[in-house]
């Protein structure tokens, strides 16, 4: 197996949040896999690094669920790439996940505050 990388100041993704992040990223328009990864990394201030080994399975899973659709296009840099797009069902799913997430954050925050 691969050797352990030196410790970096990175935050592990919470289980199940990757799907939400992908959906959220695609809210701003179609994007290819590499772009999605970069966008999440940039959006998190370099804190969240999405492994390719998690990203592509997630994309294919979401597509199978019907939340994403995909097509091959040529990028502005003249690169052929597979672009993912949010479907109507995907948008609804994003709303559900967002509201769930907000409630979870509030709940955890409440617990943490009370504990202080």
């Amino acid at each position: 197996m691969a050797a352990k990388e030196p410790y970096q100041n990175r935050v592990e993704l919470l289980q199940g949040t990757l799907d939400m992040l992908i959906l959220k990223t695609l809210q701003w328009g179609p994007q290819h896999g590499h772009g999605i990864g970069q966008a999440i990394r940039a959006g998190s201030g370099e804190l969240l690094q999405v492994e390719t080994g998690s990203l592509y399975p997630a994309l294919h899973r979401l597509e199978k669920q019907g939340w994403l659709s995909s097509e091959w296009k040529v990028s502005d840099k003249n690169q052929k790439a597979k672009y993912y797009r949010l479907t109507a069902a995907g948008k609804r799913q994003l709303l559900t996940e967002e509201s769930n997430w907000k409630r979870l954050v509030r709940a955890i925050a409440g617990v943490m505050k009370a504990a202080q």
């Binding site: 290819h32 896999g33 590499h34 970069q38 091959w72 690169q79 790439a81 597979k82």
Partner: peptide
């Protein structure tokens, strides 16, 4: 084949970046 292509594109984009 599609998946092979997708990974190859990923590598190409990354390399270009």
């Amino acid at each position: 084949r599609d998946l092979d292509e997708e990974i190859r594109a990923h590598l190409a984009i990354d390399k270009q970046d």
